[in-house]
Nucleic acid binder design. Sequence first.
DNA 1: GATTTGACTACTA
DNA 2: GTAGTAGCCAAAT
Length: 110
Amino acid sequence: MAQQDDNFFEKVYAVARLVPYGRVTSYGAIAKYLGAARSARMVGWAMNGSHDKDVPAHRVVNRVGLLTGKHHFEGTNLMQQLLESEGIMVKDNKIVDFEKHFWDPATELA
DNA sequence: GATTTGACTACTA
DNA sequence: GTAGTAGCCAAAT
């Protein structure tokens, strides 16, 4: 059985896992890649269950690179710590040079 | 089956 | 420039 999973959630997880080390993406970018560009919220929703999956949700931020979902992590700085651990600079819960670290699946994966 | 919610995004005041 | 509201879509209650 292919693990493609037709579920919207699984698609989000799949893309999130494809995010390369030291890169980040936005909910809208993933949503767009899934064909639901206007369902950026769905991506975040899917992330709610990402804890059961090995999904690097810390690499997924909002369109401005703000760590909006950090509240959903265990610690208050866990998300930032993970990002900094990958060489990404985080300032005030926001990714520095977000554009440089931005990884768009629709562009990178095409 | 209808209502609420939700880790977003964009527009408008 | 900041703040608030509206629009989207899909899942959970």
